[in-house]
């Protein structure tokens, strides 16, 4: 089966400043794929090259087996793009714009599908409005409806929930999950890492135009995140016992709090045994596990050395 998206050795520079460097990854059909990275990492440049807005310097992109330069009509028909910036066209109402948008993709406007999108995205009361009259959230919904009107096989969502309130964000993600269940592959970028962790099957993290991580979300979090064990002690410690060095210990609270880091995939029996033999006088304890946000910061601050 062809990959939904195949990117190979992709590079792009702007005025000799590299924005994307030798990027390669695949997206399988039917998955929700997250492309994350700090501002300026090259995510939007990559998405713009995939969707055909930005020219490719070197490398190649193919969608469902079609090269996006030599077969751009085929690939673009299969892509739906929700841009990061809100696109404004004040000449047409929501209804007119949706109808026209299907035609740009070479397919006849399907009134049933259009109505379904209108209903699911609650655009019904706003059909006669021009875009400038819509609220920020409605503009986002309208952009998603436009991107789906030709029934794309790969939906690209570039920061679709930026500046959107919590309730709308949740309803949009529910909708994205639903269309994914119906067979549409999703490529999304978001700054809400918690959402990416919940939504995405796999995550790629970019930094300075390069790929610094690409793994199934759970594995990425498990491999790179750390569990922390915080111990409240009866009496303050003056120095950390050498037996605990492997757990990267540190003391806080005038020596009354001992914090130990545990790799996520290791057991705790050895540690418990050591703590017991050290007779530290433990009053209380607390555990914490870092999530994607910590993994993200770890990867992007360290320059991608994972």
């Amino acid at each position: 089966m062809d990959k939904a998206l195949h990117i190979e050795n992709l590079s792009k520079s702007f005025a000799s400043m590299p924005a994307v460097k030798n990027l390669s990854f695949d997206i399988e059909q039917g998955e929700i794929f997250g492309l994350l990275g700090p501002n300026g990492a090259g995510k939007s440049t990559t998405i713009n090259m995939v969707s055909g807005i930005t020219r490719i310097d070197s490398g190649s992109i193919s969608a469902f087996g079609f090269d996006n330069r030599s077969h751009y009509r085929q690939t673009r028909r299969m892509l739906g793009v929700v841009h990061q910036e809100i696109v404004i066209d004040n000449f047409f109402t929501v209804a007119q714009a949706l109808s026209l948008h299907a035609g740009y993709y070479g397919v006849e406007d399907d009134p049933l599908w259009r109505q379904e999108l209108i209903d699911r995205l609650d655009l019904g009361p706003h059909l006669a409005k021009v875009m400038i009259k819509l609220s920020g959230g409605m503009k986002r919904r309208f952009m998603i409806a436009k991107a789906l009107i030709h029934r794309p096989r790969l939906l690209i969502l570039d920061e679709p929930t930026a500046g959107v309130d919590v309730e709308l964000r949740h309803s949009l993600w529910d909708f994205v999950r639903e269309i994914n269940r119906n067979g549409t592959t999703i490529l999304l970028t978001t700054h809400y890492l918690e959402e990416a962790e919940q939504m995405c099957d796999r995550i790629a993290i970019m930094n300075h135009g390069e790929l610094v991580a690409l793994e199934p979300t759970r594995e990425l979090v498990r491999r790179l995140s750390r569990r922390t064990l915080k111990l409240w002690l009866d009496s303050p410690l003056e120095s950390i016992p050498t037996e605990l060095e492997t757990y990267h210990p540190r003391l806080e609270g005038n020596g009354r709090q001992l914090i130990l880091c545990l790799p996520t995939d290791s057991g705790v029996s050895e540690l418990l045994h050591q703590l017991s033999s050290l007779h530290l006088g433990i009053k209380d304890f607390e555990t914490d596990q870092s999530g994607l946000e910590d993994v993200f910061l770890q990867l992007t601050r360290s320059g991608g050395d994972s």
């Binding site: 299969m78 026209l100 740009y104 029934r151 939906l155 269309i179 119906n182």
Partner: peptide, 20 residues
């Protein structure tokens, strides 16, 4: 939802006539 994945017949001149 009836399914988002299932495009209609592609008409090569429709993008042009729509833009016009």
């Amino acid at each position: 939802m009836s399914g988002s994945n299932g495009q209609g017949v592609y008409k090569p001149w429709l993008p042009f006539t729509t833009l016009l």
